[in-house]
């Protein structure tokens, strides 16, 4: 062992646990609005992730116990569960998690080596392969009690008398998009519906607030940089604002976009995933900003209203390039005396 002979006791596990803790406010609000189904999804994802990770580590001849305790698989599972429909079929979340852990993470070399955000890969696979199931978002005011929710998740059987439409609905973003395509209503009309609550949907806005709180905690703990989240939100707003000003009847206001969907979750927990984000300060700004822009573009002009995953994955591809082109100048290569 060579110098330095001392080191900070921080470990990867500690970081991951703190991130998990930071997810709690959002999670609690989410459960409050959408019911126990969220927790079922969470448990399913966590279990699947741990099993898949353990199996893959074993196959790769790595110490299973040691790597399971870095909690990175748990974090992936949580992020995925928070992005999936709360009353989705059990196999949906299992398939998505398997894909995230086995293909997007372990096959690329495990922790630290995956170019794509595993949770987002899992989500993208689910939404592309099972669009119908993914469209059945839980209704914020879910009329089912706990056992009925469980039964629905595992058996897809609704209790007699419960209408499917009452139980599940499209996400606010999806609904908005469909209605706009039908052309019957303008954006302000649609947003005025009770589904949309104050800003971006009953519950959704509060959940977003929960994520914001968790994100600020992480930033305060110096576990995430300020550049990526801020740039992502700015990127989103930067496209949303002019378009909204240009035609408020067809384009939703920026606040709606910031609060809707998984924007906040992505801004503080997805694009800040260090493994798949740039490491340079400028690179983080560029990456975040472009994720924001792409999120809006795909959301409004593309085929998938829940577009954060695609925006993130597209930008993941560009990370090595961004890193390469945004290398900060080293000590002495700038400022006073640097040119000498």
């Amino acid at each position: 062992m060579h110098s330095p002979h001392i080191a900070k006791p921080t470990t990867v596990s500690v970081i991951m646990l703190k991130v998990l803790a930071a997810l709690l406010p959002g999670l609690i609000v989410y459960v409050h609005f959408y019911g126990i189904g969220v927790l079922v999804q969470l448990a399913l994802a966590t279990g699947t992730a741990l099993l898949a990770e353990a199996a893959m580590l074993k196959l790769r001849g790595l110490p299973v116990d040691f790597f399971l305790r870095d909690y990175s698989a748990v974090l992936t599972a949580w992020l995925l569960a928070l992005a999936m429909p709360p009353l989705g079929a059990w196999w949906l979340i299992v398939v998505a998690t398997l894909f995230a852990i086995v293909i997007a993470k372990q096959l690329y070399g495990g922790l630290g080596n995956n170019p794509f955000n595993p949770a987002m890969v899992g989500f993208a696979v689910a939404i592309v392969a099972f669009p119908a199931q993914m469209a059945q978002w839980g209704s914020p005011t879910v009329p089912l009690h706990e056992l009925e929710q469980l039964a629905y998740i595992f058996t897809r059987q609704l209790p007699p008398g419960a209408a499917l439409d009452a139980v599940v609905s499209a996400t606010p973003l999806d609904f908005l998009k469909t209605q706009l395509l039908l052309g019957d209503h303008s954006v302000p009309e649609l947003l005025a519906r009770p589904l949309y609550g104050h800003v971006a949907g009953i519950g959704g806005e509060w959940i977003a607030l929960g994520y914001l709180v968790g994100g600020l905690f992480l930033w305060k703990q110096r576990l995430i940089p300020w550049q990526t989240p801020l740039a992502m939100l700015a990127g989103l707003a930067a496209v949303a604002t002019p378009l909204w000003l240009y035609d408020p009847l067809h384009f939703a206001n920026p606040l709606f976009h910031l609060a809707a969907g998984a924007t906040m979750l992505a801004a503080f927990f997805i694009v800040t995933d260090p493994v798949t984000a740039p490491t340079t300060p400028r690179g983080r700004l560029i990456f975040g900003f472009l994720v924001g822009v792409l999120t809006y573009v795909i959301r409004v002009f593309g085929g998938f209203p829940d577009s954060v995953a695609f925006a993130v994955l597209i930008m993941n591809i560009a990370v090595p390039f961004i890193d390469h082109t945004t290398q900060p100048p080293v000590f002495g290569a700038k400022r006073k005396g640097g040119s000498a």
Binding site: G61, L62, P63, G109, N113
Partner: peptide, 9 residues
């Protein structure tokens, strides 16, 4: 000390 990332997996 631990095989963190096998270089030739």
């Amino acid at each position: 000390p631990i095989a963190s990332i096998p270089t030739k997996a």
